[in-house]
Design a binder for these strands. Structure first.
Lengths: 246, 246
DNA sequence: AAACCACACTGGTATATACCAAGAGATGGT
DNA sequence: ACCATCTCTTGGTATATACCAGTGTGGTTT
């Protein structure tokens, strides 16, 4: 951390000035990725402001994606964004691992579920159809980055839940069930984290996030998997290819 | 607005309880889309909390995309999300207008620019190449929804800036320059609004937003337009199609 | 060496208060 | 009828203070 300046009167709000100062420290490498930012109380003292003002500054850092907070541990500098090509259905997991990304998968839960009114149309099954459901937490370089919940049609993938789900499911389904992904429909939106998601990602609730839903289809065009990923929005960007109509 | 309840001690923070109460009013239609939420001071009095707590509640509504604020005018209920299919390059404008969406375009600025280090590679030109640049603000049902800045190669589209830019540029370029979009490369990311963007959208700065960048190519695969859209993230969702590798 | 507990420190919540600047509407003078 | 001004309301910024609930550390006890 570089030293403070008085900078009383430059027009912009005090908390903005603090944000700019912290940004500078990050840009100059004084504060590298994943290093701790000064605490709310430390910022208050360093810059001679009240704790609420220090808090506003640090919350602005979060809102701008420059920092993330771990509950009651402190705030840390965000790393560079991860790129994710959504047009190419080759599994994100397989792709990342072959690209050398340090990716860990933690199985959070698994079980049976029944298709409800929102899932049934996506998978083209009747409401009440038995599904398998599993939720996994993905860490990149040890940092929780996104949560994925997938739903597959139970009758089509017997014993899936007894297998090791800490790997690419694309690969798993290919090897054991001769089902491979051919196309998908994807929806991306911004929304706030729910309490349980925030807990898994180690973030404060209500934090803005990116939700990515995808329906995965086989070569006959039949949907066999519905997945919902919740990403720490400041950590990723999504690329796609577009082609004129059809 | 329905009446308040004491709900002192249900475990969750006081401001959360207020959020839930307001959510309920929205879900029940007591507060329709674009209607005003009670002001910070009104919430404070209605629920018997301090203004700072009322503020936290209303800010949480914003963070969750349920409300938006107009600077110093008040907070309002967000409308339903707009769907935007990014896989189909048919112009958003043409598509929306044919679909009956009430869409207005305001030209914010236009002028010449030179390709810098970030634009030049995207458009496959040399740094310093002359470009035309224009920024437009898009309103849907009268509400500012996104800002778009497009850059095109000047030599290829003479007099473009003298034409009426309050229409689909896809159509404009087709009719006058026999250039039509065939494919595109798109990147979507979440980021915070900059001050000038916030002003145009009538929102508070630092608000989370969706940035959508696209490089548009003609039938020979040559890039002729680079566009950057900044969307109010809570107002839209983006769909895409994916196909296994290639 | 392992288990435990106390303490310091973190962010999270909350109150009360104060002043500013921008927007909206009423008021009043021309 | 028009325009300027005054006033009220709004969110935006800021201070000072208080207590709570997890986290991690270090020292003490077993």
């Amino acid at each position: 951390m570089s030293q403070i300046s008085p900078m009383k009167t430059d027009g912009s709000p005090r908390f903005r000035q603090i944000v700019e100062h912290l940004k500078q420290d990050i840009a100059e490498g004084v504060l590298p990725a994943h290093s701790a930012l000064p605490s709310e109380r430390a910022v208050a003292e360093l810059y001679g402001v009240s704790r609420m003002t220090a808090r506003r500054a640090l919350e602005a850092m979060e809102a701008e994606g420059l920092a993330y907070s771990k509950q009651r541990k402190g705030r840390f500098v965000s790393p560079k964004r991860l790129k994710y090509d959504i047009s190419n259905m080759v599994s994100f997991v397989a792709d990342a691992q072959s690209g050398g990304t340090d990716l860990e998968i933690e199985l959070v839960s698994r079980g049976k579920a029944k298709a409800d009114r929102s899932l049934a149309p996506a998978l083209a099954v009747t409401v009440g159809e038995e599904l398998l459901e599993y939720t996994r937490l993905f860490r990149i370089k040890g940092h929780a980055t996104f949560i994925e919940t997938e739903y597959v049609i139970a009758s089509r993938f017997p014993d899936l839940l007894t297998r090791d789900l800490r790997q690419s499911t694309t690969r798993l389904l290919e090897q054991h069930y001769r089902t491979s992904a051919r196309s998908g429909d994807i929806v991306i939106r911004m929304r706030a984290l729910q309490a349980d998601e925030a807990r898994l990602l180690g973030l404060a609730p209500h934090h803005a996030a990116i939700e990515l839903e995808q329906v995965i289809r086989d070569k006959s065009g039949e949907a066999f998997c519905f997945g919902r990923q919740v990403w720490r929005g400041e950590l990723a960007e999504f690329s796609a290819k577009a082609i004129v109509n059809g």
